[in-house]
């Protein structure tokens, strides 16, 4: 009898959360379905293309000759092979660090043109638009981030270490929230990032249109928000930590099909 009462009690206890979860998933799912053919994110892709082709900066040049790894001006499939090592800067760069490198080299922009921190920096919208435009040119392609150059291997190992690095008043690391399956913070689902399927779902859908702020955000934005919520200081835009974590995540997500802009809460 006790066991039955316990089972019944447990069923009732878990019912509200489970129901709330299903309802939430259903709502976001319906939203995604409704937006499939005309996502507001597409507008940002168009704005990004316009900006990409506009002559700007001291050198009055566009970004059309930017080399994202497959050669100058080759955009198709480039994002599907990022982050990667670039010989001209002698470092591993993600999509957004590469945009900054091209803006320096081709357009003559200086550091004060770049956001200091992804989250809420007033200079972010241009980067979000450029990033989503470039990323969208790899839609339908499989992610194949390389891990061959010694600096790519080093970045992977650093990213892996930092994924597990606990610090701050709350003892948090990325792994605190992203190592188990089926977990939530409040109603926010947490991806198990060491699981290829779940890592693919995350990595292939950024930059994404976020419903709540009504804007396109990038993976750098999202990492900055994660560190903010986990009681870390402000993550510097394009910092080594932000790139190394993406190299680590990309290896877990390789094989996933790029589909940007994703639609997220």
């Amino acid at each position: 009898m006790n066991r039955l009462a316990y089972a019944l009690a447990m069923w009732i206890f878990f019912l509200p959360a489970a129901l709330a979860d299903e309802t939430l998933d259903a709502i976001v799912g319906q939203y995604r379905e409704a937006l499939k053919d005309a996502s507001p994110g597409e507008l940002f892709v168009d704005l990004g293309e316009e900006l990409f082709r506009t002559k700007r900066g001291l050198k009055h040049a566009s970004l059309e000759a930017c080399d994202f790894g497959l050669g100058p001006g080759v955009l198709a499939g480039a994002h599907a092979q990022l982050p990667r090592y670039f010989a001209d800067t002698d470092r591993v760069e993600d999509l957004e660090s590469r945009l900054m490198s091209c803006m320096r080299q081709l357009q003559g922009f200086s550091e004060d043109a770049f956001p200091r921190h992804a989250r809420s920096d007033p200079r972010m919208p241009d980067f979000e638009r450029l990033a989503v435009y470039v990323a969208a040119q790899s839609n339908g392609m499989k992610l194949a981030a390389p891990l061959t150059h010694p600096k790519e291997v080093e970045a992977y190992r650093i990213g892996e270490r930092l994924f597990y690095r606990r610090a701050g008043a709350h003892d948090f690391s990325c792994a605190t929230c992203h190592m188990q399956q089926g977990k939530r913070i409040r109603l926010q689902r947490l991806a198990q990032l060491t699981n290829p399927g779940e890592a693919q779902g995350v990595f292939t859908t950024w930059p994404a249109y976020r419903v709540a702020p009504g804007e396109v955000h990038t993976l750098q934005d999202w990492l900055a928000i994660c560190y903010w919520a986990s009681r870390h200081p402000q993550l510097r835009y394009g910092s080594e930590t932000s790139v190394a974590l993406q190299v680590f995540l990309a290896q877990s997500a390789n094989g996933g099909v790029i589909a940007v802009p994703g639609v997220k809460r």
Binding site: E154, R161, L235, R236, T241
Partner: peptide, 15 residues
Amino acid sequence: LAERAEAAFIASFAG
């Protein structure tokens, strides 16, 4: 590697 990762981490945050 630990020292490299720590240096990278510390240089990655500000503000």
